[in-house]
Design a protein around this nucleic acid. Sequence first.
DNA 1: CTCTGTGCAAACTCTTTGCACTACC
DNA 2: GGTAGTGCAAAGAGTTTGCACAGAG
Lengths: 137, 137
Amino acid sequence: MKRSEQILRQHKVKVTPQRLAVYGVFNNGKCHLSAEEIFQKVKAQVPAISLGTVYAILENFTSKHLLNEIKIDFSRSLYERTDEDHHHFLCRLCRKVLDVEMPRCPVLDRKSVQGHAIENFQGYFYGVCKDCSSKKR
Amino acid sequence: MKRSEQILRQHKVKVTPQRLAVYGVFNNGKCHLSAEEIFQKVKAQVPAISLGTVYAILENFTSKHLLNEIKIDFSRSLYERTDEDHHHFLCRLCRKVLDVEMPRCPVLDRKSVQGHAIENFQGYFYGVCKDCSSKKR
DNA sequence: CTCTGTGCAAACTCTTTGCACTACC
DNA sequence: GGTAGTGCAAAGAGTTTGCACAGAG
């Protein structure tokens, strides 16, 4: 699978087995993963990897816009591929984070607000998800 | 100033000097404060208060919708009065959090998305603020 | 009087840092 | 070969927890 390697190079990210493995974790469809989850998954491929390295790679990837850091939950960060365009929903009961597709808001296409240059936007919804509200009644 | 006391009671929050002091910290215009900042300000009025109590009060106030927890910055939470309606902007250079007034997006008035009940929304912009970009050139 | 809130300190979680070693380019 | 990445362990920040005492309703 040369594809991931190309993408890393396109983003001017130095290629290592650890980085390919971290990037590869996100290949299986849409997902939001914590550093710890990524660490566990990557260990299957690169057993010697350390959690510190995972954090270093995640920091590198987010600064190069390969990944987005999602801070919707109040304890840990989640990460996802940047190629997805949506908001996020956190259920206060089951703590699951769900993607929310919505009609694109015109403000999000703006390059600046009140003179401040916009590089990124995150929209977070909080509430109770469909599954949890149906369980209750 | 009986006003704060009334508001606390209206929100079914038991009134104590500590709680009045924490609530009072937000009286001076729009502000986003961290737990530590609130702790420091409240100590002026209630010297014996502890940081743990501040956290307990903040948790109580957010659950009763007296305050909003803002998790835009990746290290600590900020808190603000709920009566303000806006998004937030974090400057990646000076780390300041700014309010962003914008045309209200129609999706925000929805009570649910894809079957999930919405109780709260936070819109976070990331980038470089006006002050920092003017300093650079 | 009872139950919740408070103060204090220790514990916990997630993340960052320092340093020696490794390996991309 | 030089610079950036890695592994490990320890440190750090912010927040939570447990418990005994105090105070609101």
